[in-house]
């Protein structure tokens, strides 16, 4: 369920570009991904349509999780009702059979309840919204306001660092930085200068 690649390793060098224009951001992310560079994640203040395809995100496994949780809820409700209403103390209400249609509402509700809770917990786990965990992906204070950030792993040497930074700048990045230490209150950022343009 959890893609380990999305966790930023403390020892990795991460280059990140900060953008102000969503269209330029989307284009640049697409180009960087097309180069075969591993994009760790994108941070945008609002959902950006098409970003999942542009950064080459794989399909989420969430639906499978939903299905499993739903089945769990169904089985729980089934065994609960079977134990209570049929096995332990058979209760005949309104002369209805102890196994039957009267189970449907509980089966339905429990399936939904389990699916909803399960998905909520998976969501918290997946987006690292756990108690006591501080976010390590704070690249720019305005990434929750009006700026978009793309974080790119530059350790695997699939792309030259200067080439990457010039690509980001040409694509419309306002700032490009390199981070080597990812602790919440102790990180090292090196700002990369805009390449000089010779016209």
């Amino acid at each position: 369920m959890i893609d380990s690649k999305l966790y930023i390793d403390n020892n990795k060098t991460v280059t990140y570009g900060i953008f102000e224009n969503p269209d330029k951001f989307l284009d640049t992310v697409g180009k960087v991904h097309a180069k075969g560079v591993h994009i760790i994640d994108c941070y945008t203040p609002y959902p950006l349509h098409g970003i999942d395809k542009a950064m080459g995100l794989k399909r989420s496994l969430l639906p499978i999780g939903a299905f499993i949780f739903g089945c769990c809820g169904f089985l729980t409700a089934f065994s609960l009702q079977y134990y209570m209403m049929t096995y332990d103390w058979p209760m005949v209400i309104g002369n209805k059979p102890t196994i039957g249609m009267s189970w449907v509402p509980v089966l339905f509700e429990m399936s939904i309840l389990f699916t909803a809770f399960g998905l909520a917990f998976i969501f918290f786990f997946r987006s690292k919204l756990l108690h006591g965990k501080m976010p390590s992906e704070r690249f720019d204070f305005r990434q929750t306001d009006d700026r978009m950030v793309v974080a790119i792993a530059t350790d695997d040497r699939s792309i030259d660092k200067t080439e990457l930074s010039s690509m980001l700048f040409n694509g419309g990045a306002v700032i490009v930085k390199e981070r080597t230490n990812h602790d919440y209150d102790d990180f090292t950022d090196v700002e990369i200068n805009r390449p000089v343009q010779y016209n």
Binding site: G94, N95, K96, M101, S102, V104, P105, F108
Partner: peptide, 12 residues
């Protein structure tokens, strides 16, 4: 469908 059927079936 179930909402209509179940109530009628249960109340009888």
């Amino acid at each position: 469908w179930t909402a209509q059927f179940l109530l009628i079936w249960y109340a009888n």
